[in-house]
Write a protein that binds this DNA or RNA. Structure first.
Lengths: 148, 148
DNA sequence: TCCTTTGTCAACTAAACCAATCGGGATAAT
DNA sequence: ATTATCCCGATTGGTTTAGTTGACAAAGGA
């Protein structure tokens, strides 16, 4: 299960990816476009900034920008940063503090590994660019609003 | 992430599967063999009983038995019973109360579906019998202890 | 009959986690 | 200076997890 927070993080990055090259986007805009509680989004974007995913501009006309090009940014990276290692159970995520009481000779291990592999494969092969393209394909090309 | 409780449930059913046909197994035995806190296992087995996975015998020489043959019992069934529907996010588990604020036209949906499919496929194609066989293959054939 | 062994059940709890919110501060553009 | 925007730490309320407790019921043997 990926947490609500992580889904928000992905949606926010996707929104920034859609607008990459167009200057900073405000928290409030991202929040509205993606239906994310604004103050919570603030926390999330700040975390993503520390993780090197986005950068920020302060003051009037400030906002957030994607640091890296969407083509090279995978969903897997984002999930791992927000949630920690991907996997159905602790003993299979490489986390050394997690240990089966059965010391690695548990019959379930193979199955957990299969799941971890399958899930990682999907997340690691989906880039933000893929999502933006899918979005455009559906006719939701981003049209900036110049006037109010 | 499958919970500790669910892992215990699977290990307990596996232990019963290993001994199926040999009469009831006591909670304490299962607990020791699988390193599960005994009083917690009590709760879990009782729940599995209500779900029709096991049955019980009370009194001296009582214990628990698997109801169905291990060949037809999949890990997927057990996980769904203990944890609810399988899937990385709520909007993809068929749960009708879960809804994206974007009304099903979210670009992430396809990816979540892929993950749900891949995970379910692994869990639904693994039976308890598969696990018992894997266990025997590793030379851990169950040898009942007749004397004490 | 009575005692021991086993499962049954409902309630309880401590800790962790999640999703958010709040209040105030810093910085940049106009 | 004023306003718009991000920055940061603390706090909250609710839910979930991983168990524990204690009293009870049934089966079987002495």
């Amino acid at each position: 299960m990926v947490s609500q927070k992580c889904q928000y993080a992905l949606r926010a990055l996707f929104e920034l990816a859609k607008r990459s090259g167009l200057g900073p986007t405000k928290i409030a805009e991202v929040a509205e476009a993606q239906a994310i509680p604004p103050r919570f989004l603030e926390v999330i974007l700040s975390q993503l900034k520390h993780g090197g995913f986005v950068e920020s501009r302060r003051g009037a006309e400030g906002g957030y920008l994607l640091v890296r090009p969407p083509r090279g940014l995978t969903v897997g990276e984002v999930i791992r940063f927000v949630e920690g290692p991907i996997g159905p159970v602790g003993c299979v995520t490489g986390d050394p503090k997690e240990h089966c009481p059965l010391h690695g000779d548990c019959v379930f291990l193979g199955m957990w590994e299969k799941v971890r592999g399958a899930v990682s494969e999907v997340y690691d092969s989906t880039t933000l660019q893929d999502l933006v393209e899918e979005d455009r394909r559906r006719g939701r090309r981003y049209v900036p609003t110049y006037a109010i």
